[in-house]
Amino acid sequence: MKAETNLVNSVNLKTNLLYIPLVIVLLLIPLGGEYITYLTGLALLFGIAALSLNVLLGYTGLLSFGHALFFGCGAYTAGMLVKHLSITSIEILVPTSIITSVILALLVGIVCVRHTRIYFTMLTIAISQLFYALAHKLRPITGGDDGIRIYSTHVFGHEVASITEFYYYILVAFFLCLFCLRIILRSPFGLTLQAIRDSELRARFAGISIIKYRLAAFVVSGLFAGIAGSMYALFLGQISPDDVLSVMRSGEFVAMTLLGGYTSFIGPIVGSFVFTYLKAVISSAALYWYLVFGILIVSIVIFVPTGLMGEIEKRRRTG
């Protein structure tokens, strides 16, 4: 009688306890040195972004190839506040990014969620490319292709002194996002999204307003991507259209989600970690990262379409 219901009320404690060692490892990461800390920080941020993408891909059944738009919206909100208004406090920057991302996601979502399948995908590409092109060209506002540099950030008046310190802020944000998304996706709302994904027709005749739910999913997805982008800008101290707004970045989020497994809640995080470390290792060895990346995607699509976590969960189920 496994998998009776997917709702949060029935989640057993044991699976949650399994995460404790992982949490401890994440807390101890700074012992591995600055570079490892930096990479893990990135992986966590990309993890949030991929997780938020999966609200659409895995749970709602919509493939967005423009998710960098919301990551970039968060990043540019922070960047432009720093550049134009010299605001450097994380506690102002991140919430403002949330607001702008939600507004943007609402506006873009209203347009996008009326469409599904390839039409949805194409729309997300087109809209994100529009903003990408604008970020490139509106140099006085966005800094053009050079982007924006952020030299210092503050938390409640205290200047963030090290990568390690920032890493812990990221860790906090990560667990907050993880917690919120888990509640959202394991709620009746999340269940309804999955129902819409599996049969839009049936969901409509279960009295569900499809568009409203898709829009809500789109906004949730944009919101968390915005948080990730905002922290990314501050963590890196530098953003540019190609880095945070490009279709390549969107594609990486898709790839991470696919790699870790879109059928699993934590799949995208696993994907983002594997992706980020692998990329670092291969690029530093001066090997052909893109070749590896491409072959990885192709192999996953052909051999393990449900990704690493999907495969693990399948094995666990079948014994």
């Binding site: 995908t121 898709v254 070749l291 990346f293 491409g294 995607i297």
Partner: peptide, 15 residues
């Protein structure tokens, strides 16, 4: 999956 497969090939070709 068809879409993602062709997407992956972009990078294979690139390198």
């Amino acid at each position: 999956f068809e879409l993602l497969l062709t997407y992956g090939m972009i990078f294979v070709f690139m390198d």
